[in-house]
Amino acid sequence: MHCIQLLQVPLGGRLDSIQPSWTSLVANIQAVNGTTKVLWAPQHEDENTQGLAITWKSYDAQKKWAASTESTAWMSKIKSIAAGPLYEDIVLFSEVVDAALGANVVELVSWIHPTSQINKEKMDKVEYGFSQVRKSISNQAPEADGDLVAGWGQIEFDHDGVPSRRFTAFIGWKSVKAHNDFKSTPLFPENIHWLMENNHTGVEVAHYAFSKSSEE
């Protein structure tokens, strides 16, 4: 399995006001034994929110680091510059995610499910639905870029008072406009039902240009 740690950090102002701190935090996590790549970008919807996608060699490597004092110190520094609650998750993918994260724009979309309802039958149904959407977009949508991958989040969190977990996808697009244009094509209503009929309790969507910002 491919392990990606995701963070969305709402800052109190523009990135340039805390640039040295942010650059240091990114460099620190890049230097951790067990990480292979760290991508970051401002969120399209809110430029004061920074997104991090940290690729780990394995889930075991991530868990080992998470149990360390170094992790505690790093997370404390992240929280010290945050202006609100963090979005954090560890997502396990069965496929390589590089092509999706390398798209011009990545749609980071999560469907929230009560933990008590997540069983093999539901997981199989959700994953099959995503596979149908992936097949259609990959083969027929000129607006798409890179790849589409999805996996289950490992961190349980409180969603409206209910312990929940996420099913999260990276969907590559040529631009945010291209994604919005896709929604007006016949492919959207023909396929969105695969993702909307699984009794989820919420959806979170944001866009990041990871491949551009991470190279700056």
Rank of each mutant, 00 (worst) to 15 (best):
S131E: 10
S175C: 05
A144E: 00
A100D: 09
F188D: 07
E70C: 04
R166L: 10
T185P: 05
V106N: 07
K125E: 13
Q132P: 03
A67W: 06
D160P: 02
K77A: 15
I81M: 15
E107M: 01
A103Q: 10
A100H: 01
M123G: 05
L86T: 13
D158N: 14
D181H: 09
T69E: 15
S131H: 06
K135I: 02
G129Q: 00
D60W: 07
S68W: 11
V176E: 06
K125F: 03
I137D: 00
D181P: 06
S94Y: 04
A141T: 07
N180C: 09
M75V: 11
K177S: 14
K64F: 09
V106G: 00
L108E: 06
S71F: 13
A67E: 14
L101H: 02
A178G: 04
L101Q: 01
D98S: 15
A141C: 10
G151W: 02
S76H: 12
P114W: 08
S175N: 06
F188T: 01
K174D: 00
P163F: 02
W152A: 01
P114T: 04
H179Y: 12
R165F: 02
D158M: 13
I155D: 04
R165Q: 12
T115N: 12
I90R: 13
A73F: 11
N191V: 03
A83T: 14
V126W: 00
G153Q: 08
G151Y: 01
Y128C: 04
V109S: 15
A61H: 07
I90E: 13
D98H: 11
A178M: 09
V91E: 02
A73E: 15
D60P: 03
P186T: 05
K183H: 12
T185Y: 08
D124P: 00
V106K: 00
L187F: 05
D60F: 04
S71W: 14
I78H: 07
D160R: 10
L92F: 04
D98Y: 08
G102R: 12
D89L: 07
